[in-house]
């Protein structure tokens, strides 16, 4: 009788959320895999044509898609380096005993709250008007022009705005990591005569590895999946040169109406993201130092 009672409670507590979760995530995922083997234009009345693996073979020859993949990878590498360096620098700054720490923390974190889409619009304005204005005033026109019209600089603009958005969030994670380093280890090293640089290199960095794992995981996956900032800042950029992965998929499905083909791309997207993030977590977990 106990068993039946327990099962009842178990269901009551877990079923509601699990059912919603199944409907919204699991079932569409499976349906998506099914769709990727078909050619379809999204209109229910038109037939779905079974094409097997054709969609997957096709995407290896799709130059715009491959361009997207390359640009997204480039963006991700630059973004991850940029966000982590800035986040770490500010974290070190905020945890030192300088008086500006609270204000700095607020200002660096605020962009994360504003959200990607709106940030993109703000910076579009800045690049368009403010940059050109500064360029005219100072005469440094090869640095202060509208970055968004140039195919290379538009990508850098994306990195810039993404860093602006994420650095605050990552800074918080590093702050938590730094604050969890026990004081006695630091004091012992100072008694032993370690310089600031030595302490940074041999104590802070190794003990920050767990925070680094998390922040690398977060930045890698958010950078790779970027969409909001992409849409509002460049909209795919001058001549599709900044069309990232996520945007390419969206345009394929809802723009061109190639539902099956687009879904096949989406599945590949998932596989790449999963492969990258799992590998990264595995490698960084191995290097974490236990105290």
């Amino acid at each position: 009788m106990q068993n039946k009672n327990n099962k009842g409670w178990y269901l009551l507590f877990t079923a509601p959320l699990f059912i919603i979760f199944l409907t919204v995530v699991v079932i569409p995922f499976v349906i998506g895999i099914y769709y990727s083997f078909f050619k379809w234009d999204g209109i229910a009345a038109n037939p779905k044509v079974f094409v097997g693996f054709d969609n997957f073979i096709k995407l290896f020859g799709d130059t715009r898609f491959l361009e997207s993949t390359w640009k997204t990878t480039l963006f991700t590498i630059l973004a991850v380096i940029s966000v982590n360096i800035i986040g770490l620098v500010f974290a070190l700054l905020v945890t030192s005993k300088l008086r500006t720490s609270n204000a700095a923390r607020t200002m660096v974190f605020m962009p994360y709250l504003i959200g990607g889409l709106i940030l993109g619009y703000i910076w579009q304005f800045i690049f368009l008007d403010v940059f050109t204005l500064i360029g005219q005033i100072t005469g440094l026109e090869n640095v202060f022009f509208n970055w968004l019209i140039d195919m290379d600089f538009a990508l850098y603009a994306l990195v810039f705005v993404f860093t602006w958005q994420m650095a605050g969030y990552i800074m918080i994670i590093y702050i938590a990591g730094i604050q969890s380093i026990p004081n006695d280890v630091m004091e012992a090293s100072m008694i032993d005569g370690a310089s600031w640089l030595q302490r940074l290199k041999n104590i802070t960095f190794p003990l920050l590895m767990p925070a680094f794992t998390i922040s690398l995981f977060l930045t890698l996956s958010s950078a790779f999946k970027i969409y909001d900032v992409n849409l509002s800042l460049t909209g795919g950029g001058p001549a599709n040169s900044t069309e990232m992965f996520a945007m390419n998929i969206y345009n394929e499905i809802f723009g061109y109406g190639n539902y099956g083909y687009g879904q096949a791309k989406a599945i590949i997207f998932f596989l790449i993201v999963a492969a990258i993030t799992l590998t990264q977590v595995y490698i960084t977990k191995k290097r974490e130092v236990e105290l």
Binding site: V24, V25, I27, P28, F29, I31, G32, Y35, S221, K225, Y227, A246, I249, Y250, I253, Y259, G262, Q263, A266, I267, F269, F270, V273, A274, T277, L278
Partner: peptide, 10 residues
């Protein structure tokens, strides 16, 4: 790990 784009259409 599943990105939103993979789920949006289905």
């Amino acid at each position: 790990l599943i990105p939103f784009q993979t789920l949006m259409m289905p």
